[in-house]
C-alpha cells in the first residue's frame, strides 16, 4: 500500500486521525497524526493484515522553536517490506503524547530517550525516567534553547 491509500484507510476507519500528508520534503513522505488517537491507529497499523507494521524502527524527537516539538515514528513492515513515517506535532510549552509502548515494546527505551533529550511527556509509559543523563539533571539538552550547565554536583564543566 502506498502512503495515500494508507492515509485514506486510516481516515475512513478513524476520522480525524490523519491531519495531513507531507510529500514535498526531501526524504520519506510522512503522515501528520492527531496525538489523541495515536495509540489505536498504531495498533491498527500493526495488526491489520494488509499493513502489518510490526516493527518500530526509530522513535525520535525534533525541536522546532518557538512553538513546536515533533515526535517522529519510523515503522516498518517485515511482512510486506514497507516503511511508513508518522509525525505528531506538539506544543513546545507542554509536549504531551500518548505512549505507544503498549503497541511496540521497543518504544519503551526510545520514549525514555526522547523524554530525556526533549522533555516530551509520554502519557501511559510504564517507566518514564531519564535514560542517558543522571536522574537529577536539569533541562533537556537537545532543545534549541538549552543552556549548558556550568557544573554538575560541584564538578566543573569547563575545560
Amino acid at each position: 500500500m502506498d502512503i495515500d491509500s494508507i492515509a485514506d484507510r486510516l481516515s475512513s476507519l478513524f476520522p480525524g486521525s490523519v491531519r495531513g500528508i507531507e510529500k514535498e520534503h526531501a526524504g520519506d513522505p510522512f503522515l501528520v497524526m492527531d496525538p489523541a488517537r495515536l495509540v489505536e491507529v498504531c495498533m491498527h497499523l500493526r495488526d491489520d493484515q494488509e499493513m502489518r507494521f510490526e516493527w518500530l524502527m526509530c522513535l525520535s524527537g525534533v525541536d522546532y522553536p518557538p512553538e513546536t516539538i515533533a515526535v517522529v515514528y519510523h515503522i516498518h513492515s517485515q511482512t510486506h517490506g514497507q516503511k511508513l513515517v508518522l509525525k505528531v506535532l506538539l506544543a513546545r510549552s507542554e509536549p504531551r503524547v500518548p505512549s505507544v509502548e503498549s503497541v511496540w515494546k521497543m518504544a519503551n527505551f526510545h520514549e525514555r530517550e526522547c523524554y530525556d533529550m526533549f522533555g516530551v511527556d509520554f502519557e501511559g509509559h510504564p517507566d518514564l525516567r531519564r535514560i542517558l543523563l543522571p536522574e537529577d539533571w536539569e533541562g533537556h539538552p537537545l532543545r534549541k534553547d538549552y543552556v549548558y550547565p556550568e557544573s554538575y554536583r560541584g564538578v566543573t564543566n569547563k575545560a
Binding site: 549548558y148 566543573t156 575545560a159
Partner: peptide, 19 residues
C-alpha cells in the same frame, strides 16, 4: 581532558583527574 567533548560536551567530565 574531555577530548573532543571538551567544549560542547555538556554531559562529559573534563578529565578524570577532577574526581
Amino acid at each position: 581532558a574531555g577530548g573532543p567533548y571538551w567544549e560542547h560536551g555538556y554531559s562529559v567530565l573534563k578529565g578524570v583527574d577532577k574526581i
